[in-house]
Design a binder for these strands. Structure first.
Lengths: 233, 233
DNA sequence: GGTGTAGGCCTATGCCGTAGGCCTACGGCG
DNA sequence: CGCCGTAGGCCTACGGCATAGGCCTACACC
């Protein structure tokens, strides 16, 4: 598509067959972020990649902030909807894991999302379906509200780790542990155990995510049952 | 302190009574961030505030990144240690809430922390004491590790909300709700309920934090008992 | 043919972090 | 006393950033 001379849509009319559009700009930004990391996404770099002047982008995005928002919105919109699941827990679990699967393909998206303060449309939709599952399962409004806070950013599949853990090599872990051994014995002990050849044999981020997720869902289910019981009493 | 002419320590020797030091630089940066937000903290701005040339700061901090790390380290170091508490749950709870109380006084600190990838010394200490509580209560290494992931950044008192919630005015909430009513009914319903004059009467961030924290601690305690039981069997 | 305007381009401003070098006054030493 | 090494500042400059404001051209339509 888009041989320079064809002027199919109003848009492909300039030299060099530019033919920009908001979608093209956002898609290019996503590709750039995927390929070279979020830091590579500057208006200049992006424009260069599109063979276009930096200022031209401003016709399609309302500044860099808008661009970033559009980028995560596009990613979130790709989350596969969960078709059918059993009880609310299975549904919520599947929905959240689907979100995680999508987000993991674009590591920068989490960083952008965390830096933003208000939700994009696709995020609202995602949240709404999750809310529907809770409400349909009998969560009252108060508990639903609590649930959102309990799950927090895990709703979009973000792990909430304090550190990135780094999956250090055993040697590194051992070195760290030795360094900390006297001042921070508990930490050293754990660092060794988690290192690849330690007692725990590495740290599986996905496993930790689901462990924490299931713990949260379990707790919420208990609260739900409590509320149900006290209502019927 | 610091009359310009007195050259007590080697350091106060230049014109203008500058007398820089790493501590002074970091403290000034913290004050600046507190007063005008993190964005105001640029090397230039900071230097101006200290009555000094921007490049002079580089004698004391190893670039901006180092400065930011030093800032959060200083804040984390201010967390009040928990003296005595009953069981592990009470201890962990108190420790985490103490962290939260301190961090809440410097909203920028959470943002900086989240952006960083490796821990500062004070953070390691904080983490180590928490680990001690778990281990002393009989958590084995595997469960301790899980616990760290379950609690995640909550360990430093960060709420893990998807959005900042913003505590919008009732009018705003109502407007949002009306806008979303058809496309996102569940969300609209909840937005109204949470708004200040809705059924739930506002959203208390601290209450939500402790609700989620207690849910997590409760879940971990259950896992601990399960492990204990299966060990003794 | 004339005109309105969409869709590019160009220039310039004011930030930013920081590399590299300079200048000066002090402490220590011959 | 005079010298010098060096700590602790300063100055200049570079390359990058987001983006404001204006310009220029080619098409669409009348």
């Amino acid at each position: 598509m888009a041989t320079p001379s064809s002027a199919g849509t109003p848009g492909t009319r300039r030299r060099g067959g530019a033919g920009l559009s908001r979608e093209r700009v956002v898609a290019a930004a996503i590709d750039l972020a995927d390929a070279e990391g979020l830091d590579a996404v500057s208006m200049r770099r992006l424009a260069t990649g599109l063979g276009v002047d930096p200022m031209s982008l401003y016709r399609y995005v309302d500044g860099k902030d808008d661009l970033l928002a559009a980028m995560v919105d596009a990613i979130v919109a790709r989350i596969e909807p969960v078709t059918d699941a059993g009880d609310w827990r299975a549904g919520a679990r599947a929905t959240i894991l689907a979100a995680r699967a999508t987000m993991l393909q674009h590591p920068w998206a989490a960083a952008v999302r965390k830096a933003r303060t208000d939700p994009t449309p696709a995020e609202l939709t995602h949240l709404d379906t999750l809310l529907g599952m809770l409400r349909d399962a009998g969560f009252d409004l108060a508990l639903t509200h609590h649930a959102i806070h309990v799950l927090g950013s895990r709703i979009l599949g973000f792990s909430q780790d304090l550190y990135d853990d780094g999956a250090a090599t055993p040697e590194e872990a051992a070195a760290t542990a030795r360094m900390l051994a006297t001042s921070h014995p508990r930490l050293a002990e754990l660092a060794v155990a988690v290192s690849h050849d330690g007692a725990l044999g590495g740290c599986d981020d996905d496993a930790e995510f689901t462990f924490a997720l299931d713990l949260a869902l379990e707790g919420l289910e208990r609260r739900r049952r409590d509320a149900e019981r006290s209502r019927s009493a």
